[in-house]
Design a protein around this nucleic acid. Structure first.
Lengths: 246, 246
DNA sequence: CGAGCGATTGAACAGTTTCAAACCAAGTGG
DNA sequence: CCACTTGGTTTGAAACTGTTCAATCGCTCG
């Protein structure tokens, strides 16, 4: 029952190669497993981070609140993701991490990760790489919200989440979990709730995707990707984690 | 004449404390100094990175091209910045770095940085921190282009560049270099060139800022910041690098 | 002088927001 | 078991912000 270690291995194994020794060392990582209720903040902006977070089950999001009450969501995290590795190098968080639905997360004390990275250069390199890959995601989110019209942007986000879910083995029958309200989609895409609603309807009519009851249904990934002009290379998927595209 | 080392020290010294020994080690870093002509690509998407880049003089930008010919700029770099530290951990670049105007850059072979980071944990921590800080910038750019109307967004970008220039000692008489065409501003802000032009005019009329002849003139930072709802905390400035704000 | 790049202008148009209301399903308390 | 609340979705119409297209202008450089 070393869920934490196993999840960590799975996570890092997705961004690069792990030697058997590294794998073994990672499996020994200990941490506190915690159930978080929906809407509960796991890490708050302004707090001093002391641990890394690993998603074992559920769905998280990271966001910034603005003075006027609006907020910008900048990432979603599904089981197997490690949202806040970089917190190791921060004395104060400048954004919030919260559970979208009841979830299960592991909290791993910084000290442990730091020690592991010091001992094992390969592990350190992979942690770096997962951070670099996160940066790449941010750039794509910027492009999406800046350049794409609402329908393409939404389709693009759907592609991303579907493919990431697929890599994590979380796709079941052309659908995956995506327990967001339309308001949350709006906060991620930089649109209004109202417009998200209408855009969703129009996508629904194309027959390519649907989002209802907290799930994302993708009926034709290829067509959806081409509609969104989606190029998966920013996800830095390794061979063997083949996307359901081309 | 160890420009490279000195610039590196200045850069890392901005994100954290450097011990005298670390400083000394950094000063010894060697690399190739290169003049790059305006519009010249320094690092191309798809290439295999072999060195880190350091801006000695001039102005760079990083962008992604899209199939339809449009592009999204995701960052600007001024003298003292280190645009592509993370390239150490990448086998293939997924974005372009290019000179906006004739500039002077230093190319430092990866091997050297890697060795230095292995020997000196403090240096490694600072490199990490500068990468984390870059992520923070990306998030703010996402917020800016997603949530702010054109005038506020532009004012926000102007604030950022002005304050960063100031930290680097590059502000002269309320103005700093910002050699962008309106088209480039548009590519950064997710607007059209035409609209950038009109927005610029309206900002000009407020008397708070102006952008002409490749320079940014800020007549009242405080008011500009409040107009843009600008909160400098995402820049992770350390005390001693006080911003010209509150 | 002519070429070329960038800034500027105008008018019609499209996409998105705003506001306000209605609707629906699920959950709660009397 | 019904009435009521709550959170989220859906609808309509008007107002606004930003885009598109096409033309003009001004400056610099060969």
């Amino acid at each position: 029952m070393r869920v934490i270690g196993e999840t960590l291995v799975k996570h890092l194994g997705r961004v690069g190669e792990l030697s058997p020794e590294d794998r073994k060392a990672l499996l020994d990582v200990k941490g506190e497993v915690r159930l978080t209720r929906r809407h509960e903040d796991i890490v708050k902006a302004g707090s001093v981070p002391a641990f890394c977070v690993l998603v074992l089950r559920g769905f998280l999001q990271r966001y910034n609140s603005r003075r006027d009450g609006s907020r910008q969501i900048h990432s979603f995290y599904i089981a197997g993701d490690a949202p806040s590795m970089e917190s190791i190098h921060l004395e104060r968080m400048d954004n919030n991490l919260c559970a979208v639905v009841n979830s299960e997360v592991a909290l791993i004390p910084h000290a442990q990760i730091i020690a592991l990275m010091a001992e094992r250069p390969a592990v350190q390199a992979l942690v770096w790489r997962s951070a670099v890959s996160q940066s790449s995601l941010y750039r794509e989110w910027l492009m999406r919200n800046s350049r794409l019209p609402a329908d393409a942007a939404m389709a693009h986000l759907f592609c991303e989440m579907y493919i990431r879910s697929n890599v994590g083995g979380l796709v079941d029958q052309n659908s995956c979990e995506m327990p967001l309200t339309q308001e949350m989609l709006a906060d991620a895409l930089g649109l209004t709730g109202v417009h998200v609603n209408r855009t969703l309807q129009s996508l629904r009519e194309t027959g390519l995707v649907d989002h209802k009851n907290g799930r994302l249904f993708v009926h034709d990934v290829r067509k959806l990707a081409s509609f969104a002009d989606f190029d998966p290379s920013y996800l830095h998927l390794r061979n063997g984690h083949a996307a359901p595209l081309s």
